[in-house]
Amino acid sequence: MTFSTTSTAQPKVAQRLQNPEKIHRSITINKSPAEIYTFFRNFANLPYFMKDLIALTVNSETMSHWVVQLEHGPKVEWNAEITEDKYAETISWRTVGKTEVEQAGTIWFSKAPRDLGTVVRLHMAYTIPAGKLGKFATHLVGEDPDSIMLINLSRLKAYLETGEIPTTKGQPSGRDEDLAPEMKH
């Protein structure tokens, strides 16, 4: 099997975006393609693992509304339409109507070698208007869209394989902001 990462493998809609930024990432998840597809296709599950996705409303079989609050950036919203949907194989989507972040994406689920589970491949294309670019903290490690999607794939893997997303948020430390009020100097 060969995986093309050239523009010909991009979702058709992406070709309509002018000079889009592109993301190609893949990850291997220790579950079957059908299990991962079924979880992912129910968009109500996405906020469980997607970083910064604060609200997702499913409006119909194909339409959904997304609200993302970036950790060090603005809040952005869009409407998305599913443009392709094959059970246990692939899902494609694109934004419709006016939005600051125009995008299109495809996710593929294919059986990995031996007993390794499933290879999940994600391709995305997006454009951010020049004036808006400065609002995104793209210079911080882990805060650019490519890193965010890589983190999201890792979190999807952790959630499906273990039933939780590893975290240290809320643990104690000796930093002043983490101390209980009566312990602060």
Binding site: E164, T168, G170, P172, D178, L179, A180, M183
Partner: peptide
């Protein structure tokens, strides 16, 4: 240091 006690997070 005197710090908060850990909680169940997951």
């Amino acid at each position: 240091r005197n710090v908060k006690e850990p909680q169940i997070l997951n």
